[in-house]
Design a protein around this nucleic acid. Structure first.
Length: 323
DNA sequence: GGTAGACCTGGACGC
DNA sequence: GCGTCCAGGTCTACC
């Protein structure tokens, strides 16, 4: 009998607002159904992949979520699924932590969905977040969508209902570079992705160490810069996906934001330097402040993120359309 | 330490 | 429809 998990969430959690909060929610194998407000995807679990759909069943007195799987999960798998869904939805981020952010930046206290903005969605595993970040570097958004779709289609194991998972580190580690390039269209990233997968598979990338409060932000950032395919932008982005928001992830989109929203002028390098100074007052929350400004700008042009359809964003979020 | 050029893909543009 | 140009972040070689 298919497993159903009931999952408690922090009291300010709203599935639609908090899941549709970062671009990766539009990348395979993630899926958001605007009409039914349902999150779905395949999880890699101990005995193999399982597809699930998750909805919010209650807001008060306490938010509740219900996840329905396409197969029966063992008891250990149920724990694993809870952990991975918790990571995806940032359920470990408490109401108190969100309030601390709003104290520094009150603009997001009353965002759509009630309770205010603060959580950013991410992947069930750090490995998937790193790969998604590397596939977002040096390409336009449609290419990132395609690379992730092909990685799942070509290398992802299938759930009982036939849907593909994200490739596991083990699978990606033993894939040939030529296959990645020809069938997944990852270009020159082929060997870098394989090297990342090997490192992760061997335990050389430790999420426990990277998220340990005893590890400083500087130490974590410095380590991330040593990873293949990871430079200053990618490292900054992976930092926020680890729950460390004290760094910005500056790229060409940041320059666009600096010009169009903050009204900065001058050469790109100068704009980025001024942006770094601009967000400094937000301290350990600066990525959140920066990101929600960008997200609000997207929503002002494209409608609320909860209404976005995956296919349409491939054409709506090209550089030309965002000018 | 700073910088130029290569890397690869796909959208935009001109014909 | 086809060919060409260009944007995008990281890496390496070089000064």
């Amino acid at each position: 009998m298919p497993t159903i998990l009931n999952i408690a969430a922090p009291k300010d959690f709203r599935l639609a607002r908090d899941y549709c909060s970062y671009g990766y929610f539009l990348l395979e194998p993630n899926h958001w159904e605007p009409d039914t407000q349902t999150v779905s995807r395949v999880l890699n679990l101990e005995s193999g992949p399982a597809h699930f759909e998750i909805v919010q069943t209650a807001i008060r007195p306490e938010p509740k979520l219900r996840a329905r799987f396409d197969r029966s999960l063992t008891r250990p798998e149920q724990g694993e699924a809870r952990r991975k869904i918790g990571r995806m939805l940032s359920l470990d981020v408490t109401h108190e932590q969100i309030k601390a952010f709003h104290k520094v930046d009150p603009r997001w206290t009353r965002a759509a969905g009630g309770g205010g903005r603060g959580r950013l969605s991410r992947s069930p595993t750090l490995f998937e977040d790193i790969v998604k970040t590397v596939t977002s570097c040096n390409v336009a958004w449609p290419s990132t969508i395609n690379m992730n779709r092909r990685l799942c289609d070509v290398l992802g194991a299938r759930s009982p209902s036939g849907k593909p998972a994200f490739p596991t580190p083990a699978k990606l580690a033993r894939t040939r570079a030529g296959t990645l390039r020809a069938r997944c269209r990852v270009g020159y990233r082929d060997q870098r992705l394989i090297d990342l997968a090997k490192m992760y598979h061997k335990g050389e990338i430790s999420e426990a160490w990277l998220t340990d409060p005893k590890t400083t932000d500087d130490e974590a950032f410095k380590f991330l810069l040593t990873l293949p395919g990871v430079g200053p932008y990618a490292a900054g982005n992976i930092m926020q996906l680890l729950g460390r928001f004290s760094r910005l992830a500056l790229d060409s989109e940041s320059v666009r934001h600096g010009k169009t929203v903050l009204g900065l002028t001058g050469k790109d390098a100068a704009i980025l330097k001024r942006m770094t100074a601009h967000y400094e007052p937000f301290g350990e929350h600066k990525f959140r402040s920066y990101w929600f400004e960008i997200w609000a700008w997207y929503e002002a042009r494209q409608g609320h993120a909860t209404t976005w359809e995956k296919k349409k964003t491939a054409t709506a979020f090209t550089a030309a359309k965002l000018k």
